[in-house]
Design a protein around this nucleic acid. Sequence first.
DNA 1: CTGGGTGCAAACACTTTGCATCTAT
DNA 2: ATAGATGCAAAGTGTTTGCACCCAG
Lengths: 143, 143
Amino acid sequence: MSETDADTERLTRALRAQGIRITRQRAALLEIMARADDHPDAVELHRRASDELPGISLSTVYRTLAALEEHGVIQRHQFQGETARFEPADAEHHDHMIDVESGEVIEFHSERIEELQAALAREMGYEIVHHRLELYVRKRRDA
Amino acid sequence: MSETDADTERLTRALRAQGIRITRQRAALLEIMARADDHPDAVELHRRASDELPGISLSTVYRTLAALEEHGVIQRHQFQGETARFEPADAEHHDHMIDVESGEVIEFHSERIEELQAALAREMGYEIVHHRLELYVRKRRDA
DNA sequence: CTGGGTGCAAACACTTTGCATCTAT
DNA sequence: ATAGATGCAAAGTGTTTGCACCCAG
């Protein structure tokens, strides 16, 4: 059994325990999300799901994505001007660089930046609930 | 003459020089934006504009906002799940903290964070075109 | 067996657009 | 005078929802 298969099965059990039914549609989407190493949007996920489950409706995809997000299984991102994209919610938080020329999304993480953010918020009397950091970038020509 | 009046007049001239006509509608919106110290959305701006220019249409507001954004006069922000909000584009860049309880938007700036972002992007072979940093926060109770 | 999930179509919220008319320059 | 801007209504886009039927547990 592949690692993502094992992950998916564990997830399935956890979700069922939380009282959410794993239908064929949801199983398909869970599997697709587990495999996805890009950041697909609802329409793209619907396309992928249709391959193994012809007839699955776009509304089901939206409803499932909402449910999975609510249960912390996936994360929704709304990049500048784009439609919502999704990715599996891994343990470690990360931010995104978006290549404005290719649309490619690169993940990164900076503990130093996170610390500065937290310190800044605290100074101003707030605590961070969550944050969003997006760098819209272009490949360096002079590199 | 107030300072914002002077600013608005300067802007008006600059825009006209770039070949965009300053109609009553646009003048009203320029003035409203100059005065705005919050981050209103299109509907709110339409409401404010309607006070001094009854009959102004929402599409004109949208078209004007698009034009002003294109000419770098205002900036558009799309906060998590909200409708687009606008603010005058001042010289100095800043980021936003959004109070998730009140919806209030607080501006801040950290040169240190900006430097780290730039360094990070460079390391990965990119240069930053623009970025977005939003801290979704809540007032500290234990402060 | 039964309540949650699905597919479909219709509704939604926000934003954009086509067109006839108007107005800033 | 005339090209660009407006108001209106209609179309778009991405997403959500009501409802009758279905199927996972």
